[in-house]
Amino acid sequence: MTADTQRTLWDISPAIHAAAPVFPGDTPYSQQWCATIGPGCPVNVSAITLSPHVGAHADAPLHYDPQGAAIGAVDLAPFLGRCRVIHAIDCGPLIEWRHIAHAITPDLPARVLVRTYQQAPATWDGALAAYAPETVQRLADLGVQLIGIDTASIDPASSKTLDSHQVIRQRNLRVLENLVLDAVPAGDYELIALPLKLTEADASPVRAVLRAL
């Protein structure tokens, strides 16, 4: 990667490995070798097991709606295009409108990513920040099609009603979770975060990147 590319491209995906944090009870990443280079074998081939919610990922409607579409059936357009990164660092348990109002302008892009961590944790954070459902509603009213966050969920980890997920279900929004925005200044970028075409899955890992406009 050239110095110029390093200045204009931000990788906002956490590393995925056996110690990568997962929601309690979810399936962590594991890998085993099915074949290794040696006499009679010209390649390395591995098998991996993981929840599709490990690392940076896109939830499918199927995740929060029993009749919802699997991730392989969703439109890719919301995952690609101009976005705004908004800083709401240490905002508390919920991202309320007052935490992001400073960055809401008439030219708000259709994609909004909110940074809540000063530095993303390397272990599971049960006190993660989430979106207040009213904030999601107001963003949808402004034409936002995708919301993202640097925590593991847009709802509190203890929530059983998943109110913000229900808002994105009702308003047909898409969501990215577990992003790493530590090094990203607030502002507008091009987002590229395409999910895999998994025809029956409730989510998909993404390699999320931001590119300078």
Results as ranks from 00 to 15, higher is better:
Met1Tyr: 03
Thr2Tyr: 14
Asp4Tyr: 15
Asp4Phe: 08
Leu9Tyr: 08
Trp10Gln: 11
Ile12Lys: 02
His17Cys: 09
Ala19Ser: 03
Ala20Gly: 04
Ala20His: 01
Val22Trp: 05
Phe23Asn: 04
Asp26Cys: 04
Thr27Tyr: 09
Trp33Cys: 00
Trp33Phe: 02
Ala35Leu: 01
Gly40Tyr: 05
Asn44Thr: 15
Val45Tyr: 02
Ser46Ile: 06
Pro52Trp: 03
Ala56Tyr: 00
Ala58Trp: 04
Ala58Cys: 10
Pro61Met: 06
Tyr64Ile: 04
Tyr64Thr: 01
Asp65Ile: 05
Gly68Thr: 14
Ala69Pro: 00
Ile71Val: 14
Ile71Gly: 06
Ala77Pro: 04
Ala77Lys: 07
Pro78Trp: 04
Pro78Ile: 00
Phe79Ser: 01
Leu80Met: 10
Leu80Ala: 13
Gly81Leu: 11
Gly81Gln: 13
Gly81Ile: 06
Arg82Val: 06
Arg84Thr: 15
Ala88Thr: 10
Ile89His: 07
Cys91Asn: 09
Gly92Leu: 05
Gly92Cys: 12
Pro93Phe: 11
Pro93Met: 06
Leu94Asn: 09
Glu96Phe: 05
Arg98Asn: 14
Arg98Lys: 05
His99Phe: 07
Ile100Gly: 11
Ala101Pro: 14
Val112Asn: 09
Val114Tyr: 14
Val114Ala: 13
Thr116Tyr: 09
Tyr117Met: 11
Gln119Thr: 09
Pro121Thr: 06
Ala122Asn: 07
Thr123His: 00
Ala129Leu: 11
Tyr131His: 09
Leu139Trp: 07
Ala140Asn: 10
Leu142Trp: 15
Gly143Ser: 01
Val144Asn: 13
Ala152Glu: 00
Ala152Phe: 03
Ser158Thr: 04
Ser159Glu: 00
Asp163Arg: 14
Ser164Leu: 10
Ser164Thr: 05
His165Glu: 08
Gln170Met: 11
Arg171Gly: 11
Leu173Trp: 04
Val175Lys: 03
Leu179Asn: 14
Ala183Val: 12
Ala183Met: 10
Ala183Thr: 15
Val184Tyr: 15
Pro185Ser: 01
Pro185Lys: 08
Pro185Ala: 03
Asp188Ala: 03
Tyr189Arg: 12
Ile192Pro: 12
Ala193Lys: 08
Ala193Arg: 06
Leu194Asn: 10
Leu196Tyr: 13
Leu196Pro: 12
Lys197His: 04
Ala201Arg: 08
Ala203Ser: 01
Ala208Asn: 13
Ala208Val: 14
Val209Arg: 15
Val209Cys: 09
Ala212Lys: 07
Leu213Cys: 04
Leu213Ala: 02
Leu213Ser: 00
